[in-house]
Structure formats: C-alpha cells, structure tokens
C-alpha cells in the first residue's frame, strides 16, 4: 500500500496525449497486484497491468483511488469485462471531482489565504501557511482515496458520492472565490505601497484595460500572453522614454 501511495506521487511523469495517466496508474497499482494468488505469474497480474496501461485519466490526487479500486477487483476475482467497465467508468468522476475540489476549489483558496497572510504578516509566513493548508488536504485526499479504493473495490462509486466529498465541493465552491476576492485588494495595496500616486493611477488604468481586453475584446487571451503584451510594450516605451 505504501509503495503504491509513493508511486502516485509521480503518476503524471509520463503524461502523454495517447494514454494520459494510464502508464502512471499501472505503475502505481503494480505493488498491490503482487499479492494475487500466484503473484506476478498470475495471468490477471499481466492482464490488469495491460488494461490500466491503456488510456486512463483522472485527477492526479485521486489516481490512488483508481489504483486501489482496480487492484481490489482483481483480488476479488471480478470478471475481466466488469473490471474494464469499472476502469472506464472511473475516468469521468475522478477527473471532475478532483478538478472541482482541488484545482477550482482548494488550490485557489489556499493560494489566496497564503497571499493574505503574506501581505498582512510576512511573505515567508504566507508561503508556510499556503503549503501547510494546501498539502493537508492534498495528502489527506491521496491517502483517503487509496484506502477507500482498496476498501470499496467495485463499490467505489459509493465512496465518491459520500457526504464528505459533497461537503468539500460545496465549501470549496463558496470559500475559494470569497478568499480570492479578499486577497486581490490586499495584494494590490501591498504591491503599490512603494509606488507614487501617479504610478498607482497608472497601474489602475492598466488593470482596467487588461480586464476589458481579457473579458470583452479577446477572451481567449491567456494571462501570461496578456502580461507579455503589456510588459514588452512598456519595456519598449521605457526604452524610448529616456
């Protein structure tokens, strides 16, 4: 179990467009298959690796849940077509629950808390609070997911539909935008502290212009490209304005 948990930390190492995290999940799951009757010579050992090393996708923190459940069904002797249906059925829910819970919830919430602590206390304190807060849930989710998958096997859907997951989703959906909203004015004020009044007005104008560009005129423009466009223009203007 520990070996599988550790291997899920590198589950995306071979992320590719053909099989996404399939290889990573197969590699992570493999230690759980060694205990099959007959060990690595059992035909189900190879068949399971072959199946999972095909196309598979899930949120990386929930790949342990998939590895646990898919290994458990091999131990339980679930017929192979049914095991394969489970593998296919897990792809959507494990992706969407993880994305909503972590990428669209806990990550922005933790970042915002980290930024707020950084500007109100100190940046190192902000960094520590961000890392601790984020990784409490991160590692908790990885550990819970692997244990739940291994415990539930074919009944894994019940774990995903549990009250804890729903409560987490509801909390993250409200708390993340609130925290990000609170962080933005505080960070803006902190960053502009050392600038003069005219620069503050300038930054506000640039901010408004950028917002109009990304929200109205060119919604497909990514943040990094918008930033490059503005900053490179400013470098050229600054160079000419000697």
């Amino acid at each position: 179990m520990l070996a599988t948990w550790v291997r899920t930390l590198i589950v995306q190492a071979s992320w590719n467009y053909d099989r996404m995290v399939g290889l990573g999940v197969a590699y992570a799951m493999e230690p759980l298959l060694r205990d099959l009757p007959g060990g690595t010579t059992n035909s189900r050992y190879t068949a399971a690796l072959k199946r999972v090393a095909g196309f598979f996708n899930a949120h990386p923190y929930l790949t342990g849940m998939a590895a646990g459940a898919l290994a458990r069904v091999e131990h339980d002797g679930v017929p192979e077509p049914q095991a394969d249906r489970l593998r296919r059925a897990l792809i959507g829910p494990l992706g969407s629950v993880g994305d909503q819970l972590i990428w669209a919830g806990w990550l922005p919430l933790s970042v915002a808390v980290g930024l707020i602590v950084a500007v109100l206390a100190s940046v190192p304190a902000g960094v520590v609070s961000f890392l601790v807060l984020y990784n409490l849930v991160h590692f908790g989710l990885r550990t819970w997911g692997l244990a739940a998958g291994w415990r539930a096997g074919i009944g894994i859907a019940g774990e995903l539909a549990g009250r804890m997951v729903h409560a987490g989703l509801r909390f993250a959906a409200a708390a993340a935008p609130f925290a990000v909203g609170a962080a933005i004015p505080l960070v803006a004020s902190w960053l502009l502290e050392e600038f003069g009044a005219s620069e503050r007005v300038g930054a506000a104008v640039v901010g408004a212009l950028g917002l109009v560009l990304t929200r109205v005129l060119v919604p497909t423009l990514s943040g990094v490209r918008l930033g490059l466009l503005f900053v490179v223009t400013a470098v050229v203007a600054g160079w000419l304005w000697q």
């Binding site: 960053l191 930054a203 990304t214 503005f230 900053v231």
Partner: peptide, 15 residues
C-alpha cells in the same frame, strides 16, 4: 507599474 497593473488584471480575470 505596468507589470503590477496587468498582474492585477490577470488575477481579476482568473477570479
């Protein structure tokens, strides 16, 4: 100044 302004715009867009 422009870097801070555009960073805030990007954060607001993300929010």
């Amino acid at each position: 100044t422009v870097a801070v302004g555009v960073a805030l715009a990007v954060a607001a867009t993300g929010a």
